[in-house]
Design a binder for these strands. Structure first.
Length: 563
RNA sequence: CGGGGCGUGGCGCAGCCUGGUAGCGCGCUUGCCUUGGGCGCAAGAGGUCCCCGGUUCAAAUCCGGGCGCCCCGACCA
């Protein structure tokens, strides 16, 4: 392609709408333009990248025997009412001209299951893996960071159908392999992490996630290889040396001290020695939740422990009704007939400080197990520096972009939608399903977030819009121009994926643009070196320059750079 | 859903407080010049000042309502 003939609208300044560096650069480099919040037009460069990305995805999906379908995004309400997901609040819904409820698909479990149930009859037809690459629509409350969270986006989603759990394990493992290959080939730095499976039906799931500052997921990571989404991550607190002695709980006055922070300041004690008492209402039943003073409740983990997503913090009035004291002076000692959940970090601790259930009073010398009984569960969000549950080293927290999610669905959809086959004994059994997604735009986004400097992007070759940019320093210089044209013809003949910057621009402009748009290698034809029969090959990511003889450019590219 | 910010040529911004002529930089067009890091000179084109309503002789500016976009938090099957 000749730059003079294609549309690559680079910008010198950063549009005010963009915050994340990768987003700014994709705009400046002329890849994308915004249409609405979370809705983008993908221009020429972006589309070239997406075609390369989806090609990698297709090759790797096909390799595990997955079959590509193409399903509509426009759906009738019935399908979603049947699966129980019509109520999902991020779904775009509307009525057609006949007043039928319609929606745009947020994903395709329903449609795939619908096909499976009407067509799959026998265990002999299993296993099946069906996938598609299609637009998904989600009316996100907060789209953000360019292509990182969109309202319309492309997802590769696949669905596996097996006879039993063992089969699902195989299909799941195949996807893990395929995803590992896809993200490796895409040139991303990524992690495979344990993930929270959600409330409904899910058992096992994991995420593929790309560490990047602008990511919105937190991942806890250990050098031993353990990595988990913060929603799911477990860690052991660094052991605490408790005060000796076995004195009984003793009240002391804490007038006006409402928060752990207040207590720390007033008493000089570490929050590690305190018990934070929270009151929640779950399915209209009160639950008392205890955490170490410096720890944070994970509502995700709480949902798992409670077995329901229906809960909320109690109002101050409710808390007062239940404890006879106001928020800030609550504690577990003396509470009877109410469910008390304590984070496991409190197990085996002693002589702690907590609220006395009397306003402006706290208790010291409180020992869990002796002074109150509670169920100990993992309830807190892992903190930086906690110890790895596998190896005992310290965990690090990193921000990360979720690229893909693999999920053992089990029978959640097949049972509600009656998707069954006959097994070898002639018994009707529900299909065992898995679902597996990859955000196509997120691969480009993550690559941009991970690979940029002050001058612009340097995308991994596998997903860059071009492999090479051929820059003629001065198109008005006849000999230089002729040499560049000749090189361009050779590259085209040899099927090198090249963008020829043949614009009548000053060299500075061309170099700036070339640095900006993320093409991994630049071949520069300049007057001085051309006089000795040389051109430069410039590696955008390392900034290394190699002089190459005019006649050897294609060979050098093929042999060294584009292997 | 809670909090904050912004909306003025294609992009970045000033002007608004204190009402009266719409301005700067970049980009764009034409000519000359220049050609290894967004060159220089000159002449131009380009604006419903987000929308609707109100106040006023007069509104980008003041008042009311709405819409859009961004950021933080909540949420993210």
């Amino acid at each position: 392609m000749r730059w003079s003939q294609v549309f690559i609208p680079t910008l010198r300044e950063v549009p005010a709408e963009a915050e994340a560096p990768g987003h700014q650069l994709l705009l400046r480099a002329g890849y994308i333009r915004q249409v609405a919040a979370g809705v983008y037009a993908y221009l020429y460069l972006a589309q070239r990248s997406f075609l390369k990305i989806t090609r990698i995805i297709r090759e790797e999906m096909n390799r595990i025997g997955a079959q590509e379908f193409y399903l509509p995004a426009l759906n009738p309400a019935e399908l979603w009412k049947e699966s129980g997901r019509w109520g999902v609040d991020v779904m775009f819904k509307f009525k057609d001209r006949n007043e039928h409820d319609m929606c745009l698909g947020i994903t395709h479990e329903e449609e795939m299951t619908n096909i499976a149930r009407s067509e799959l009859r026998s265990y002999k037809q299993l296993p099946q893996i069906w996938y598609q690459i299609q637009e998904k629509f989600r009316d996100e409350p907060r789209p953000k960071s360019g292509l990182l969270r969109l309202r319309q986006f492309n997802m590769k989603d696949s669905y596996s159908f097996d006879l039993d759990d063992a089969g699902l394990d195989v299909s799941y493992d195949k996807h893990v392999d395929a995803y590992t290959r896809i993200f490796t080939r895409s040139g991303l730095r990524f992690l495979h992490v344990d993930a929270y499976s959600g409330m409904m039906g899910g058992k096992v799931s994991s995420e593929f996630t790309a560490p990047a500052e602008s990511g919105e997921d937190w991942v806890a990571q250990c050098e031993c290889g353990y990595a988990a989404n913060l929603e799911k991550a477990e860690g052991r607190p660094v052991p605490v040396e408790d005060l000796p002695g076995d004195a009984p709980p003793e009240p002391f006055a804490t007038p006006g001290l409402k928060t752990i922070d207040d207590l720390v300041k007033a008493t000089g004690e570490s929050p590690v020695r305190m018990i934070k008492t929270l009151v929640y209402i779950a399915e209209s039943q009160p639950v008392v939740i205890l955490l170490r003073g410096d720890h944070t409740l994970s509502e995700t983990k709480l949902a798992s422990v409670l077995g329901t997503g229906v809960f909320r913090p109690a109002t101050p009035d409710e808390a007062f009704q239940l404890h006879g004291a106001h928020l800030g002076s609550l504690g577990p000692v003396g509470r009877k007939g109410v469910k008390i959940l304590a984070d496991s970090a409190l197990e085996l601790r002693r002589n702690m400080i907590t609220g006395a259930n009397r306003d402006d009073q706290h208790l010291r010398h409180v020992t869990p197990g002796r002074d109150f009984t509670a169920q100990f569960k993992d309830l807190r969000v892992v903190a930086e520096g906690d110890l790895c549950i596998r190896c005992g080293n310290r965990l690090r927290l990193v921000r990360s972009i979720e690229l893909g999610h693999v999920f053992k669905l089990g029978r959640r959809y097949s049972e509600t939608m009656h998707a069954t086959v006959l097994d070898a004994r002639g018994q009707e059994v529900p299909l065992v399903m898995g679902s597996y997604g990859i955000g196509v735009e997120r691969i480009l986004s993550a690559a941009a977030e991970q690979n940029h400097d002050d001058d612009g992007l340097f995308l991994p070759r596998a997903i860059a819009p071009f492999d090479v940019i051929l820059t003629a320093a001065n198109m008005d210089d006849e000999s230089l121009r002729a040499a560049a044209e000749k090189l361009y013809s050779e590259m085209c003949e040899q099927s090198i994926d090249v963008l020829f910057d043949d614009r009548q621009e000053r060299p500075g402009v061309k170099f700036k643009d070339a640095d900006l748009i993320g093409v991994p290698y630049r071949v520069t034809v300049g007057k001085k070196k051309l006089a000795s029969g040389l051109v430069e090959v410039f590696d955008r990511s390392t900034k290394q320059i190699q002089d190459v003889k005019l006649g050897e450019v294609v060979g050098t590219l093929r042999g060294k750079y584009l292997r």
